[in-house]
Design a protein around this nucleic acid. Structure first.
Lengths: 130, 130
DNA sequence: CCCCTGATTCGACGGCTGTCAAGGTAGACG
DNA sequence: CGTCTACCTTGACAGCCGTCGAATCAGGGG
């Protein structure tokens, strides 16, 4: 619950601070770049990035921790640590159902991040605008 | 020159390895996630992210190092270090013209990264398709 | 109630990273 | 040539980060 709130706040902060301002439109403020960097930092690890893709592409949009652990040559605690980092960055959410814990991605956050990146490409790739 | 080649190879590798495979479509391989993580890691620092936006949004699409250094309360070598990280990640390119060195972003790489992120959002936000 | 499994937290350790001061290189200008 | 400015490289150091083993927490059955 408090954990859920914290996750929600991360997303809300990102939405508020970053908004839809494209990277190439205007320079990021110190605050904006700190918020955004937190997300990129979380994605800046091969294991976490793979975890993210495993969860995102898993059937039903969610994956149990035990499914994820088997994929890597890493200890349980290490996987748990990486999942925590992703959670605290607002990229995924975790829910306990009985014995198992299921994780799913937050598509909204990924969409926001993509929005920040994309317009920079519009200088190179012509985009049809309304 | 060898430096330029190295930068080009990073981009080529990313293009080859990552391609246009969306995050939520299928799980990333260990190799793919390592390549992608390298880029996210480079963006996972507030200073570097801000440098990136400063360069991207600067008039003419390029910025001189001296323009960038003044923005931060950081020493010259530190800025130079961050620029090197961004360069080795394939996110920017540097060119010396006389006394000054000018940096500009690689929109292609940003576009590719955005492509990897975006399709995950299409599950949440309805998208109009042709 | 005790144990068994799944998952997280804790404590510790090695390696990586951001930072700076000092020194080095490249080009411009006399 | 000498020197000045712009930028980079090196070396060093503190702090962070990924990893593990051990301990701990949460449920589900005997």
């Amino acid at each position: 619950m408090s954990k859920q709130d914290a996750e929600g706040q991360v997303l809300a902060q990102l939405a508020e601070v970053v908004g839809c301002s494209p990277l190439a439109r205007e320079p990021l403020s110190a605050e904006q770049s700190s918020e955004l960097a937190r997300v990129f930092k979380a994605m800046g690890d091969p294991v976490r990035l793979r975890l993210l893709s495993l969860i995102a592409s898993h059937a039903g949009g969610e994956a149990c921790v035990c499914d994820l652990t088997d994929v890597f040559d890493l200890s349980g605690p290490t996987i748990s640590h990486h999942l925590k980092v992703l959670r605290e960055a607002g990229l995924i959410t975790g829910e306990r159902r009985g014995t198992w814990v299921y994780y799913r991605v937050r598509p909204e956050l990924l969409a926001q991040v993509a929005t920040v990146l994309e317009p920079a490409a519009s200088d190179a790739l012509p985009v049809v605008e309304a």
